[in-house]
């Protein structure tokens, strides 16, 4: 299995993503600079967390138009699994690969803490090692994670079982406590909390590791 982590100017969780993928895949993923007009052959693309382009204009707005995103979009259309975490999620919604938008946290504060998430579905290559309804603990760190979408869009997400995670306790003002969502083909996952930072007991738990194990297992089949 090959994976690629896209690095934007201002990304800062790219190395965390590389570390998690290396641990689970047994080999290091490619890292790809945002100016790239070609992606290496990859079975998984990760858009990491951080503050791409200094969050100018809107979080993820500039990165969504980076040259590399044309390739990411083409890969998404071919069904390549794509994971966007935190700023990566913001980039995915700005690129219209996922619906909705991420607004300033309702309390106007950057929130950095471990959060309890409820897994809403296991029906995705990213989620097959979780059970729908189970609760997991994942670190979260963001100032703009307040998920918003028009009521009809939220209803569609719920009707199609495309809400991946909800905060177990109201966290940042997100509509219906949504913490992560899936694309229509269930192969693009965007989420605010950081599964790549929950891969070892030493650093606070392994609930995020199963997400990477899920996708590795799914790709292997």
């Amino acid at each position: 299995m090959q994976a690629a982590v896209v690095v934007f100017p201002g990304s800062n969780r790219d190395r965390d993503a590389v570390r998690a993928l290396t641990l689970v895949m047994g080999r290091a993923p490619h890292t790809v600079w945002h100016h790239a007009t070609e992606l290496p052959k990859a079975d998984l693309i990760v858009l990491p967390g951080g503050f791409s382009h200094g969050d100018y204009l809107r979080c993820g707005a500039m990165a969504a138009h980076s040259p590399v995103m044309r390739e990411v979009r083409a890969a998404a259309e071919r069904g390549v699994p794509i994971l966007g975490v935190c700023n990566g999620f913001q980039i995915l919604v700005e690129a219209h690969l996922l619906p909705g938008a991420l607004l300033r946290n309702a309390a106007l504060k950057f929130s950095c803490k471990r959060v309890t998430l409820k897994v809403e579905t296991s029906n995705s290559p990213f989620l097959r090692r979780y059970n729908a309804g189970e609760q997991i603990v994942i670190p979260s760190a963001h100032g703009e994670g307040n998920y918003f979408a028009a009521p009809d869009v939220v209803k569609q997400l719920e009707d199609d079982d495309r809400v991946a995670f909800r905060y177990a306790h109201s966290h940042n003002g997100s509509v219906k406590d949504i913490a992560g969502i899936l694309s229509a083909n269930r192969r693009v996952l965007g989420m605010m909390p950081h599964p790549e930072d929950a891969i070892e007991e030493l650093t606070g738990g392994t609930d995020g590791k199963r997400l990477f194990e899920s996708i590795v297992e799914a790709v292997a089949q």
Binding site: R58, V93, G100, A101
Partner: peptide
């Protein structure tokens, strides 16, 4: 439409 505003919000 393309960049300056996000039509969703």
């Amino acid at each position: 439409r393309k960049l300056l505003a996000n039509p969703v919000i």
